[in-house]
Amino acid sequence: MRTFFKLTSISIQGQLYYKTSFFINLLTPIVLLAGQYLLWTALYAEAGSEVIGGMAREEMYAYILISFALGNLIGWSGENMLAREIRSGTVVARCVRPAAFLVQSVAEMSGVILIQGVVNLAIVLTGFLCFGRYLIMPSVPAAGWFIPCLFLAVMLRIMLIDVFSLLCFFTTGYLGLAWTRNALFEFFSGAMIPVVMFPEWLRTFAYATPFPYMLQVPSALLLGQELPVSIPMIFVVQGAWLIVFMFLHGGIYGLARRNMTIAGG
C-alpha cells in the first residue's frame, strides 16, 4: 500500500505544480453543469409540465448535480495520461518499475480523482445548501449505500480508461479511442440523458453494459430513484464488471508485451 499511496501522492503533486493549468482544469467543467441546467430548464419550460419522462423537475436538478460530480471526476488530461505515455513510448518507465502496471495506473488516476472529487463535493454541497428547496434531498440510508457504490463506480471508470488506454499499444489513433470511450460513457452512463428516459429496448441494452453502473446507478441510489436491480445486486454487478475489466487489462497488456516496439524495435 505504501507504493500505491506514494504514486497517488506523486500524481497529486504533479497536478498541483502548475497553478494556472490546475485551476483551469478544475473549474471549466462548471460550464458543463451550467449548460445541463439551462438545457433541462428549457426542456421543462417547453414541455409545460413539471415531469418529463417520469422525472420531476427537482429530481432532474438533483440528478444533474450528482451526475456532474460523478461524470467529471476525471478530466480530459487525466483520462489520457496513460494513452499519451504509450504513444510517446515513455510508458517503458512504468514497465520497469517494481510495481504492478495496474497498481500504477489506478494510483495515478486516484490522485487525479481525489483532487477533482474534493472540488466536486464542494460544488454539490454548495448546490444542495443554496438551492435545496428546488432539489430532492438524499436520505441518510441512501447515502450509506451510496458510498461503497461510488467507490466501485470510480474503480469501474478507472478500469474503463485503463483498458481503452492500453489499446494505444496497437493503434496510433489514441484520440479516436478517447472520443469513442467518452461517447460510450457519456451516452450509456446517463451523463447526458438519464438512462430511465431511454426507450425500453435501449434502456435494457444500456443496463447490460457497465456504463450506467459508473454514474446513473449510484446517482439514482443516492436520490432514491428507480434502480435496474436490487441494491445488493448492484454491488455484485459492479464487482463482476470490475473482474471483467481486470481480465481485459491482463489480456491486452499481455498481448502488448509480445509486440512491444516502444523505445526502439
Binding site: R2, L7, I10, Q13, G14, Y18, T90, V96, A263
Partner: peptide, 25 residues
C-alpha cells in the same frame, strides 16, 4: 534500466521527489 531517449523521472515533479519515490518503490 535507462533508455536514453525516454526518461524514467516523473516529469511534473522535482527530481528529488522522483528520488523519494524510488526509495518507496
Amino acid at each position: 534500466v535507462v533508455f536514453g531517449q525516454k526518461s524514467n523521472l516523473w516529469t511534473d515533479i522535482p527530481v528529488i521527489e522522483s528520488y523519494q519515490a524510488v526509495k518507496t518503490l
